[in-house]
Nucleic acid binder design. Structure first.
Length: 921
RNA sequence: GCGGAUGUGGCGAAAUGGUAGACGCGCCACUUUGAGGGGGUGGUGGGAGUUUUCCUGUGCGAGUUCGAGUCUCGCCAUCCGCACCA
């Protein structure tokens, strides 16, 4: 009886579907475990062999947790709104919903073949109105909330309105765009429009003018994480900065909590660091500098982290976009400043980035006064100061800041050193160390002492205050696109007005074309009846991250029509215990999701303040491309080893017609018409291809499709091999030729059960040796799964099976636990063998076998360690020590004895895993 | 420039501070058969020696230790993230 994986896999996949084996139900008496994959965007290209890596890992873990008695929630769905389907729609006129539907069907088919234990009854799609109803709901909640800084929580906007009515802005500490001051009387006298404008300044979802990333080719704005090096992440089109009014989310209000709460998460340090970096907290001070433009004096506020260096301020710098530029430009300098601003504005984002270290700037014509020295310093304008950070204005201390230094050098401004013995003749001294000098009351202090001392002084004299600044900006939340969630907001007399909850979902309207309108409006401008009682509805749609921000909550209660998630479901499933996905979402989805969750937490809709407890980033699987070498000007191809003798061009060749780097010549001739009559110069009768490790992509012809692997080797082999390739978190190349190893392993497992004439399993008692192999395996597999070291777990299986197979061990007592151990990795074959052993329930419901610790230590628990033929000392070993530990302990003790003891060791006391004491006389 | 990660055979990779290279691929030899990417056995870091064996070896250089692939410090290389954030 051969291992017929095709039949077996089909059989068990339909069995699982029919019996809803993996359906999860809330069961308060049982411990829960929530395992989540980052849901895919269903692209037209389908899955390649790299995509399921994380899914396989999470599936193994889910199945393992089930065997350990947990009630496991392991759902899957689709991030179905997005640009590619829409771009395709623009080109073909096909509705994005149709394309998306088709792609999802294909994804599902591919996923099903791999044998995942998803609870498909909980599937969600972000483009489904029943789903995006709750995305819109969350938006309305954010629109209807503000952030109370003193309570560090989101609160209903009604509370803010009530206190405006009572006492104006007095006592308000709320996150806002710009600080406002008014009395209750002033508030009450405002028109509805004025009130609306004021409230926009506080809402968590708000409309505001800001400098945005505008991508002309895509016709939409993009969030910071959707732009890389001046190009859009999707499509790679150039992006420019533009001032526009957009919907935004006040993510910045949560910056402190987003940063602090990272500490309790089980994420990798590198990922946490990426987020810390992105959020970018710095402690410093705001300081007031008096600035004169000739006829008026202003209080200009700047932010600095180096309050200790105020005595070294020799000039001030404004960002070109700063509102101070207009105020402080003197009539004499007006022309020069205007010219400079025009020059800066002309530059694309791309140019700004590439010219990062070119010094540019212009003098404003105004002067500011150093609040500590009373000295007059010039105010300059330069693009090296960013409008969006701090106050858009800085005090420049060229001696101790390299950027200020470069600027001072370029424009010949004075440089005053403030730290004893530092040399600023060539470069600035940026380090926060040394003894202060030239600094009045700070002289003699170390920098570390001087910073707080300077801030204290400034606070006491009312010229500044402590301030924490964040790099994290608010998220731009509107996109001028069709294929996204519509905003449930209309504009009544120009006032943004939320639609009632009961009217949700606000469904995407049908439109004739998916392009922007002729007047430059977003595609929804084409929709008919896109209004509420004649008032226009918002025409932008929400960005991709809207739908993916709370999807993990919806899985807990996917069919609930009256809440995002019921209190019962939420308090049972709580949050994601294990989240597996790529590192590319570090500063996008993983920030937004945390923000979204915290917002819902503040309002009491969810019970956990973090969405994802443990997170693992699986590595990328790269492609292994193959090349053929065409001799220039001919249709002759020379084998890799001989190519140096010719002038050749390297051509990518489809890896599916190459085996072990040997080209299938016939298949190659059929591959493309121009190769039909290709000739070959062979070595040893074969055509050897070159290879390279590259990204897996269609254009490199190195895409390996999981369906093909399932066809030739089976899903179980695919699963095992993907794990066997190397550590989960590491990037590694896919190379199909290595798959034979795991394929052989599974066949060998099969042959332990089946001989030529059928089942050969016996009820014989296993030997001590066989039991030892089994128990060592149990221990290894358990610890490896728990530490996500799946590659070594697979190796351990191979070693154990080799040993058992060698002894022709087909004993039930060994095989039964072996099947259970194997089932998370290779579920189909495990089910089949489990059934062969006479069980009529899925192996899913078995329990993970315990290993017997005491087993392996032999009769005596005292080991004699000898050296140079003489017994040197004895080791007491507790009976519960596994054999493998004993061996390594004795070995290390033997080594130790050579040096430490010289014969004097009396006794070594050992406990499992640790040497406790060595007694030496 | 800042931050993080990685560096071990021909390849993917293993090694609680204790015999480096487990396991798998590939390769070599033998073997078996109903030889269509079959099953089994043995070998395989480099160098030397017909056997027992010896020397050498984890990017480079120091250090800690009886003992370092592993810990510490300094370089070098590769990859990733951020990048005028005051």
């Amino acid at each position: 009886m051969d291992y017929n994986f095709r039949e077996i896999e089909k059989k068990w996949q339909s069995y699982w579907a029919e019996h809803q084996t993996f359906k999860a139900t809330e069961a308060p008496s049982r411990p829960k475990y929530y395992v989540l994959d980052m849901f895919p965007y269903p692209s037209g290209a389908g899955l390649h062999v790299g995509h399921p890596l994380g899914y396989i890992a999470s599936d193994i873990y889910s199945r393992y947790k089930r065997l350990c008695g947990f009630n496991v929630l392991h759902p899957m769905g689709y991030d179905a709104f997005g640009l590619p389907a829409e771009q395709y729609a623009i080109q073909t006129g096909q509705h994005p919903a149709v394309t998306t539907e088709k792609n999802i069907a294909r994804y599902r088919e591919q996923l099903d073949r791999i044998g995942f234990s998803y609870d498909w009854s909980r599937e969600i799609r972000t483009c489904d109105p029943e789903y995006y109803k709750w995305t819109q709901w969350a938006f309305l909640k954010m629109f209807g909330s503000y952030y109370d800084n003193s309570r560090q929580a989101a609160r209903p906007i009604e509370e803010l309105i009530a206190s405006f009515e009572k006492s104006g802005t007095d006592g308000i500490d709320a996150a806002c765009g710009e600080e406002k001051h008014f009395t209750a009387a002033q508030w009450n006298a405002m028109s509805d429009k004025e009130k609306s404008d004021v409230l926009m300044n506080y809402r968590i979802a708000y409309q505001g003018e800001t400098s945005v990333n505008w991508c002309p080719q895509l016709g939409t704005v993009l969030a910071n994480d959707e732009v890389k090096e001046g190009y859009s992440v999707r499509g790679g089109f150039p992006v420019e900065q533009k001032k526009m009014t957009q919907w935004q989310l006040r993510v910045s209000a949560y910056a402190g909590r987003l940063l602090d709460d990272l500490d309790d998460l089980e994420w990798t340090d590198s990922l946490k660091d990426m987020q810390r970096n992105w959020i970018g907290r710095s402690y410093g001070a705001e300081m007031i500098f008096k600035a004169y433009n000739g006829d008026r004096e202003y209080d200009m506020v700047i932010f600095t982290t180096r309050a200790d260096t105020v005595f070294g301020v020799t000039f001030m710098v404004l960002a070109p976009e700063s509102e101070w530029v207009a105020r402080l430009t003197s009539p004499e300098q007006k022309q020069a400043v205007d010219d400079y601003l025009a020059e800066v504005k002309k530059k694309t984002e791309r140019e700004r980035i590439s010219e990062t270290h070119r010094v540019t700037g212009v003098f404003s014509g105004s002067w500011a006064v150093n609040p500590l020295t009373g000295e007059k310093v010039p105010v300059w304008i330069s693009e090296y100061v960013l409008a969006g950070y701090g106050t858009g204005a800085i005090m420049a201390v060229p001696a101790h800041d390299s950027r200020d230094y470069a600027f001072a050098r370029h424009f010949n401004l004075p440089i005053v050193p403030l730290i004893e013995g530092c040399d600023v003749s060539e470069t600035s001294f940026d380090a926060k160390e040394g003894i202060m000098c030239n600094s009045g009351f700070l002289n003699g202090m170390t920098v570390r002492e001087a910073i707080p001392a300077a801030i204290d002084y400034v606070e006491k004299h009312g010229i500044g205050r402590r301030k924490v600044n964040y790099r994290l900006r608010d998220a731009i939340f509107s996109r001028q696109r069709y294929w996204g969630e519509p905003f449930p907001v209309y504009f009544k007399d120009g006032i943004a007005t939320p639609m009632p909850f009961e009217s949700l979902p606000l469904e995407l309207p049908e439109i004739d074309e998916y392009k922007p309108t002729e007047t430059g409006e977003p595609p929804l401008g084409r929709a008919k009846d896109w209004d509420v009682d004649g008032w226009p509805i918002e025409k932008s749609t929400m960005p991709g991250f809207a739908g993916s921000s709370a999807y993990y909550l919806r899985y807990m209660d996917p069919h609930n029509g009256s809440a995002l998630v019921s209190r019962e479901a939420d308090s049972y499933w709580r949050n994601v215990d294990l989240y597996i996905g790529g590192t590319e979402h570090a500063t996008g989805h993983l920030i937004y999701s945390r923000f979204w969750n915290k917002f819902l937490y503040d309002l009491g809709y969810v019970c956990e303040k973090e969405p994802f407890k443990k997170l693992i980033n699986q590595g990328m699987i790269q492609g292994r491309s193959n090349f053929v070498y065409r001799i220039v000007g001919t249709n002759r191809f020379v084998s890799y080893g001989l190519k140096d003798g010719y002038e050749t061009t390297e051509i990518h060749v489809d890896v599916n017609i190459v085996h072990n780097d040997r080209l299938d010549i016939e298949a190659f001739r059929k591959w493309r018409p121009e190769f039909a009559d290709a000739e070959f110069i062979l070595e040893d009768g074969e055509y050897v291809c070159g290879y390279a490790i590259e990204k897996m992509s269609k254009s490199m012809y190195n895409v390996v499709n999981p369906d093909m692997v399932c066809d030739t080797y089976g899903a179980d082999t695919l699963r095992l091999y993907e794990m066997f390739l190397g550590p989960l978190e590491q990037s590694k190349p896919w190379d199909t030729k290595g798959i034979d190893g795991v394929s052989r392993f599974l066949k060998r497992v099969w042959r332990m059960f089946y001989g030529r004439d059928g089942l050969i399993v016996t009820d014989d008692r296993p030997s001590a040796e066989e039991l030892k192999t089994l128990h060592r395996l149990i221990l290894k597999v358990k610890t490896d799964i728990e530490s996500f070291s799946f590659n070594t777990a697979v190796s351990a299986f191979m070693i154990a099976v080799n040993e058992l197979y060698e002894h022709k061990c087909s004993k039930r007592e060994i095989l039964e636990p072996l099947v259970i151990l194997l089932s998370p990795f290779a579920p189909h074959i495990s089910e089949e063998l489990w059934e062969a052993l006479g069980h009529n329930e899925s192996v899913t419901f078995a329990s993970f076998p315990e290993y017997v610790e005491a087993y392996t230590v032999e009769d005596s628990c005292t080991y004699a360690v000898s050296f140079n033929g003489k017994t040197r000392f004895t080791v007491d070993l507790p009976k519960t020590m596994p054999q493998c530990d004993v061996e390594s302990h004795v070995r290390s003790l033997e080594q130790t004895s050579k040096y430490v003891a010289g014969g004097n060791i009396i006794k070594v006391i050992v406990v499992p895993g640790k040497i406790v004491n060595i007694v030496v006389k």
